[in-house]
C-alpha cells in the first residue's frame, strides 16, 4: 500500500507525533468517547427496530427488548453502558485538556466545540433515560419540566418546545424520541467531525 494514499491516511496524517500517541498524554479519552458514540449509534439503530414511543408502549417495548427479542438484552445493555462510559470519558477528557493546558490559543475555539459536545452528551443521556418510560423516567420528566418552568417568561415555551407533552405519566413522547434518536445524535456527529478537523487545523494533538 502506498503510504500517501489509502483511506486512513487520507483522513489522518501520515505521521503522528510520538507524544500525541503516548497513552499518558491523552489517556485515549477522546478516542474512547468517539468509539462509545459509534457503539451508541449502531446499537441505537438496532433498538429503533423494536422501540415504540408512548405512555404504555415505551416501557412495554423496553421490557420486550430486554427479555424477549433475541440479543435484544445485550444490544440494550451495550447501548446503556456505552452511554454511561461516554458521560464519564467526555468529562475526564475535559479534565485532561485542562491538565495539559490544551485550551490555550489556537485551541480555545475547539474547547467551545468540546463544551457543546459535553452538554449534548448530558442531554442525550437524559432523553435516553426518559425513553425508558418507567415511573422513574416519569418523575425525572416532571422534575425537568418543573425546573424549566421556573424560568420566568421563557420557561414554559422552552419546556413545550423541547419536551412537548411529557408528564409524570408519560415521559416517552414522540418529541423526546425524535430529539434522542435523530436530532441530537446528528448534531453531535457533526460537531465531532468538526472537532476532529479543528484538531488538525490547530496543529494536531501536541504540547503547545
Amino acid at each position: 500500500m502506498s503510504q500517501k494514499r489509502g483511506f486512513l491516511n487520507h483522513i489522518r496524517p501520515h505521521g503522528v507525533s510520538e507524544k500525541a500517541m503516548s497513552f499518558g498524554y491523552t489517556f485515549c479519552l477522546g478516542g474512547v468517547s468517539f468509539l462509545a458514540f459509534i457503539v451508541l449509534g449502531l446499537t441505537g439503530i438496532l433498538l429503533m427496530f423494536h422501540y415504540l414511543p408512548g405512555a404504555k408502549s415505551g416501557y412495554a417495548s423496553v421490557t420486550t427488548l430486554a427479555s424477549v427479542i433475541p440479543f435484544g438484552g445485550l444490544i440494550r445493555n451495550l447501548h446503556f453502558w456505552a452511554g454511561q462510559v461516554m458521560v464519564v470519558s467526555v468529562s475526564l477528557h475535559m479534565v485532561r485538556v485542562v491538565r495539559t493546558k490544551s485550551y490555550r490559543p489556537p485551541k480555545e475555539w475547539n474547547w467551545l466545540v468540546g463544551m457543546s459536545l459535553l452538554v449534548l452528551t448530558l442531554v442525550l443521556d437524559f432523553t435516553g433515560y426518559l425513553l425508558r418510560g418507567s415511573q422513574e423516567s416519569g418523575a425525572a420528566a416532571a422534575v425537568a419540566v418543573h425546573i424549566l418552568t421556573l424560568l420566568p417568561g421563557i420557561g414554559r415555551p422552552l419546556a413545550q418546545m423541547f419536551l412537548g407533552e411529557v408528564s409524570a405519566a408519560n415521559s416517552s413522547t414522540l418529541m423526546v424520541y425524535v430529539w434522542h434518536c435523530v436530532a441530537l445524535p446528528f448534531l453531535a456527529l457533526w460537531l465531532q467531525m468538526f472537532h476532529f478537523w479543528k484538531i488538525r487545523k490547530d496543529g494536531g494533538v501536541r504540547p503547545l
Partner: peptide, 19 residues
C-alpha cells in the same frame, strides 16, 4: 470494545418500575 461487551453481558441495565 471487549471490556464493553463483557460488562454488558454481566451487568444488565435496569428497566425501572412499570407504569
Amino acid at each position: 470494545l471487549t471490556a464493553l461487551v463483557l460488562v454488558s453481558a454481566l451487568f444488565p441495565a435496569a428497566v425501572g418500575t412499570g407504569p
